[in-house]
Structure formats: C-alpha cells, structure tokens
Amino acid sequence: MEAGRREPLIRVRGLVNRFGSTTVHQGLDLDVWPGEILGVVGGSGAGKTVLLRALLSLRQPQAGSVTISGDEMVGVAESVLRRRRQRIGMLFQNGALFGGLSLLDNISFPLREHTRLSRAVIEDLALIKLRMAGLDAKAANLFPNELSGGMVRRGSLARALIMDPELLILDEPTAGLDPVNAANFDELILDLKSLLGLTVLLVTHDLDSLWRITDRVVFLGDGRVLEEGSVEDMSRSEIPQVASYFKQRRKH
C-alpha cells in the first residue's frame, strides 16, 4: 500500500457489544482503508449488522472506540453525529425506505434536509441517482410498497448515495436478488466506486459477490475478526470455521 493511505478511514478498536447476557462482539478490531471494497462475512448472527449499527453509532457499544476519518463516533452528542453521518451512505438490510414517501421523495429526502439547494436541482440529482442505481425514471413516482424487492434495494442504494458520501455501507445488498440482478448490482458498485472514489464496506453471504468486487475480506466469528485477507486466502484458511464457511458455500 502506498504511503498516505496508512490512515484508515474506519478504525475500530476493542469494540464490545452485549445484549443482556449474549455477547456479540468481544474486543473487535477492524481497519477499513480509503478506496477499498471490504467484504465482511460470518455466519448468521455473527454480529455483522450489529457492527454496522455500531459504526454509525446507531447503537451505543458497551466498550471500545470507532473513528471514521479520524472523528470519534462513540459517546458523541447526536448533534455532532448528524454532521458526521452525512459523509456515510448506508443501505439497510431490508431497504428501510420511508413508506409514506414516493421513491423520488425518499431519495431526495437527505438533500432536502441537509442542503439549501433549490427544488429543481434536488429533483435533478435524485433522478440522476435513480438512473445510476439502475432504475427506470418511471419508478420515481411509485411508493415503496409498489416496488419489487430488487427495486427497493436499488432505491435505497440511490438514497444512500444521494449526499455523495465517501463511505458506503451495504448490508447484504444482493440477498434475495436473482443471479443476473445480483451481478448487475455488483457491477454497479464497482462503477460507482471508480466514478466517485468510494470506500465500500459490504456485508454479504454471496460468495460470487465477494470474488467479483471485494479487495479484502474479514471473517467475523466468536465476537472478533477471525481471519482477514483476500478471498483466495479465505478459502485456504486454516481456521476450521472459516474454511468450512467457504467450503460450504462453494458447493452451490
């Protein structure tokens, strides 16, 4: 890695997350470097979604620190976080589009909240993002309950991208998409990355996706990062949990 990239965009140290007596993370350390696409894998319930929520400070961890571009995210006032979160686009596992707003209003919502751009420009930008996310302009007027699962995914990607974030966090973006659509979605992420210089943190169970787009993969288990490296490294891992995860997935 060249000099100047040594400062990680996300730095997680000693993260501890507990729900009652279940410990989800036990001293988790993680670095995400600028400009990379990092895949996060791990069995169901390994704490991937909880990790993402802790990164955005949507939940308060029991211990540990999270910094994003050098700014602390843990234990910071909500008013400060609001500004910091604007630089991050998040795609939630189930889309999380606002049911009462049309797709266009969903996408333009952050712009209307956080900028003083005129309506016309906001509308232009939302429609452009809609196209970038691979949706037809006709979908703009539809409401979330009138969209298919894949369209919801794309719509919420468009919303995650609307503020032109430096960091894009995706929670299982291709789950439930057909293989062609999933491949297209991956292409889309690659395109966006090269166009906008994004850093991407991607949680996925889709091995094809991992091979296609990630630069590096971390495997979560036992409350911490068990293994990290390229996808090839992973499939050759000596840790039984990791090896079996990748072997199991290989079969189909």
Partner: peptide, 13 residues
C-alpha cells in the same frame, strides 16, 4: 453523468 436527467413522462399527477 449529470448532463442529462432522466425524467418520467408523467410527473406530478
């Protein structure tokens, strides 16, 4: 990327 804006035919009903 931003040179054209894809507009739906019917917009505000």
């Amino acid at each position: 990327l931003v040179e054209t804006v894809p507009r739906p035919e019917v917009f505000h009903k």
